[in-house]
Design a binder for these strands. Structure first.
Lengths: 230, 230
DNA sequence: AATTTCCTTAACAAATTCTTACGATCAAAC
DNA sequence: GTTTGATCGTAAGAATTTGTTAAGGAAATT
């Protein structure tokens, strides 16, 4: 499973390649729409990053062609804001797009987001799992959290926080780490946004929020999910 | 380990210097690409904040030169109007960039994020481990200390002291050494802050604090963690 | 045994960190 | 355009930690 990057500008392709490889993804490269189509036929690709404007057969056409056979999520790159209407028309549910110039961090964030999204929709499951501790069960498949069998409705941010914390039960994460993971951007201000969300999650999942059973604070360090081996 | 700030605008360098010093980072300054390269060769630098556009040898060139030998994460500064694509072409995985004018808080946040990121990716990994002696177990990941299986809640300072002492079980450390390690600053006064903390830790981990089993004093020298081989 | 030095203990005040409540903001839905 | 729900920011209050002081013991020195 790899990510296909398609852009006629070599610099951009290579930069993205570096970034994404660093994140542990396998990368395939194409510099024209034709190459992209050929690779999609041959290789096992889970995500495409595609420049909209390219000579010869442009990105949009290539996309249409690909879409005839395969349903691979695509992140579009576009230089001009005017193109966006066109892209919108073409994107199928779940596709994303980024306008140039873009922040490398943003690209990584969107790739992760896209893969996570796609995976939860049953496209081609990757690391989808179920996390448990005590009566707490978080199921990636259904984006669902249950406490002793009772379903708890979490907001997206709350879900992300819980997912992050439960990915390594017992481990303590700092507020900044939690912020970076849930918001996908560095934590600027020393606000207590995370703390507020923690409180809200507690209100939902804890029987007695004042004495949390699951979502515990480690004073001066951060928060963690208690790991109950049962 | 210090942070190198490189920009031809003195004001910017000095502003950043103030902010980052205030956060406890050691700072090195350069006003040209050449200076930056020279410093990178000589000094122990863990992060570079680099302006893209500078006279003489500009930031991008300096970056290339630096990248030939060292893999230090870089945060680029660039004016909005400048060609961000160019930056993309040069950056290696994990770099970040900020557009001017920037919020000082944002810079600090990104610096922290970058360092954390780099550290967790094996650049220079923090010592993560588990330390044991007798029934005493200290686990770094979980920021947790257990005595005969029972979890003991330590405050940040207490944890640091224990971590330091347990990193070399049996070895005796002076009060000043302990202070310098837990507080990360030299010990000026001859107060008994450390002693007080030692007492508090004992109260938590020892069955009989008057006859400590683990945290022992070595009269006139300092304290140590008893090393039980089991 | 007295003295000195160092360690232990206790209690308090200050600083820091977390919790909670409330209102503002923002975007989507109606 | 209004309503709704989700998210965010602020600020006050509560809880915890930390540094300081001071008095009491224990170990070494004389």
């Amino acid at each position: 499973m790899s990510i296909l990057i398609c852009d006629d500008e070599k610099e951009i392709v290579e930069a993205l390649e570096l970034y994404l490889k660093n994140e542990g993804y396998a990368i395939l490269k194409a510099y024209t729409g034709r190459e992209a189509i050929a690779l999609v036929e041959k290789e096992d690709i889970e995500l495409i990053i595609m420049d909209v404007m390219m000579p010869e057969m442009d990105g949009l056409r290539a996309t249409m062609k690909i879409r005839e056979t395969k349903n691979i999520p695509i992140i579009f790159l576009s230089a001009k804001t005017e193109d966006n209407d066109k892209i919108m028309g073409l994107t199928m549910g779940g596709d994303d797009y980024i306008t140039k110039p873009f922040n490398p961090m943003e690209v990584i964030a969107r790739v992760k987001s896209q893969l996570r999204r796609y995976n939860t929709l049953g496209g081609c499951p990757e690391k989808v799992g179920t996390y448990r501790t005590g009566g707490l069960v978080l199921e990636d498949d259904y984006k669902r959290l249950t406490v002793d069998g009772e379903e708890v409705k979490l907001t997206p941010v709350e879900y992300k926080i819980m997912h992050f914390l439960m990915s390594e039960k017992g481990k303590v994460f700092s507020i900044d780490q939690i912020y970076e993971n849930a918001w996908e951007e560095p934590a600027y201000n020393s606000d207590n946004t995370v703390a507020v969300h923690i409180r809200r999650i507690r209100e939902k999942i804890e029987i007695n929020p004042k004495e949390p059973k699951y979502l515990k604070v480690v004073w001066g360090i951060g928060y963690k999910i208690e790991n109950y081996l049962d």
